[in-house]
Structures are given as structure tokens and as C-alpha cells.
Amino acid sequence: MTLVDVKDDLVDLTAGASKGFRGVQPGIEDVVDELAGAIPVFGDAAGIPAKVYERFTVETKSIDALTKKEAVLEKMLEATRESRRLKVHQRENTIAQMVDIAKSTAQRTRDKGILAPFEKTLRYNAQAALKAAKTRRKNEAAKAAATSSLDK
């Protein structure tokens, strides 16, 4: 997908630049329909210049085009993030598999030296288990403290 067809409508605002911007309100579709019928017939009588209404229609078309692009881009971003998460998960599983194989080989051959070249990988793979154990100990200590304070 490209943004070539909306490139003239794209802006990159500085952080906070949109503070105070008006937003779309409920009923905009009714306003678009009403103006499409009323302006050609009553626009001059109401003092609404054709250029002003033309700007409104151009802005409305731009908003519609950008909204469609935004929906596609959001779906693409969602798919990209989910794909990355899956690939990270698969890579972590592959690391765990290699660690399991190396440990098994070291145990079967009774040669712990086989593990030396994989020190960082073994430590990396153990992080989640160490963190989980630390959390379990912390939760158990908190539970024990809560129980002992209730017993007093």
C-alpha cells in the first residue's frame, strides 16, 4: 500500500501541536448531506461563498481518503506487531531448545565443559525462570506476613 494518492494531505505535526483542535462530532454525515442539497439552492441567499463550500467538500474527501488509509495502516501495524511477537516467541523457543540440547549432551557425556561456550545463552534462557522464582518467593513472603499480622 502506498500513500501517494494522499501525499498532499499528509502533515507531520510537532508534539502537542494538535492540542485544542476541533474534532468530528456526531451527525457529520447528516451535515454533509444537508449542505450538498442546501448550498446549491440557498448558499448565495445565506451568504456562503462557493469557495468556502468547495473547501468543505475537498476537506471532506481528504478526510474520507485518509480515514480509509488509516484503517489499512492500523491493520498492517497490527499484523506487523503480531508477526514480530510470534517471531520473538519462536526465537525464544529455539533458544530454549538449544539450551536443553546442550545441557542434555553435557549430562549424557558427563562433560560440563561443553556448556562453557554457551554461558551467555544459558544465563539468558534462565532469566524468566529466575524472575518467576523471585516473584513466587516475594508473593509467599507477603502472604506469610499478611497471615502473621492477622494472627496477632
Score class of each variant (00 low, 15 high):
Asp9His: 07
Leu10Lys: 14
Asp12Cys: 01
Asp12Arg: 05
Leu13His: 03
Ala15Lys: 04
Gly16Lys: 14
Ala17Val: 04
Ser18Ala: 15
Ser18Leu: 14
Lys19His: 00
Gly20Gln: 00
Gly20Trp: 11
Phe21Ile: 00
Arg22His: 03
Gly23Glu: 06
Ile28Lys: 01
Asp30Val: 10
Asp30Arg: 09
Val31Ala: 13
Val31Asn: 08
Val31Tyr: 06
Val31Thr: 07
Val32Ala: 09
Val32Asp: 11
Glu34Asn: 14
Glu34Cys: 15
Leu35Cys: 13
Ala36Met: 08
Gly37Arg: 03
Gly37Trp: 05
Val41Cys: 05
Phe42Arg: 05
Gly43Glu: 11
Ala45Gly: 14
Ala46Phe: 06
Ala46Thr: 15
Ile48Phe: 11
Ala50Ile: 13
Val52Cys: 11
Tyr53Ala: 06
Tyr53Ser: 03
Arg55Ala: 10
Arg55Ile: 08
Arg55Pro: 08
Phe56His: 02
Thr57Ser: 03
Thr57Ile: 04
Val58His: 00
Val58Glu: 07
Glu59Ser: 01
Thr60Trp: 07
Lys61Gly: 13
Ser62His: 15
Ile63Trp: 15
Ala65Gly: 07
Thr67Phe: 15
Lys69Pro: 15
Ala71Val: 11
Val72Lys: 08
Val72Asn: 13
Leu73Gly: 01
Lys75Ser: 10
Met76Cys: 06
Glu78Pro: 04
Arg81Phe: 10
Arg84Pro: 07
Arg84Tyr: 15
Val88Ser: 04
His89Gly: 12
His89Gln: 13
His89Cys: 14
Glu92Cys: 04
Glu92His: 14
Asn93Arg: 08
Thr94Met: 13
Thr94Arg: 09
Ile95Phe: 05
Ile95His: 01
Ala96Lys: 08
Ala96Arg: 07
Met98Ile: 11
Met98Ser: 01
Val99Lys: 02
Asp100His: 03
Ile101His: 06
Ala102Lys: 04
Ala102Pro: 05
Lys103Gln: 02
Ser104Val: 02
Ser104Cys: 06
Ser104Trp: 05
Gln107Ala: 02
Arg108Met: 02
Arg108Asn: 01
Thr109Val: 06
Lys112Asp: 08
Ile114Gln: 01
Phe118Tyr: 11
Phe118Cys: 07
Phe118Asp: 08
Glu119Asn: 12
Lys120Tyr: 00
Thr121Trp: 11
Leu122Arg: 12
Asn125Pro: 04
Asn125Leu: 10
Asn125Ile: 06
Asn125Phe: 15
Ala126Tyr: 09
Ala126Thr: 06
Leu130Glu: 07
Lys131Glu: 09
Ala133Pro: 05
Thr135Arg: 12
Thr135Leu: 09
Arg136Cys: 08
Lys138Trp: 02
Lys138Tyr: 07
Asn139Asp: 07
Glu140Ile: 00
Glu140Gly: 09
Ala141Cys: 06
Ala141Leu: 15
Lys143Asn: 04
Ser148Lys: 15
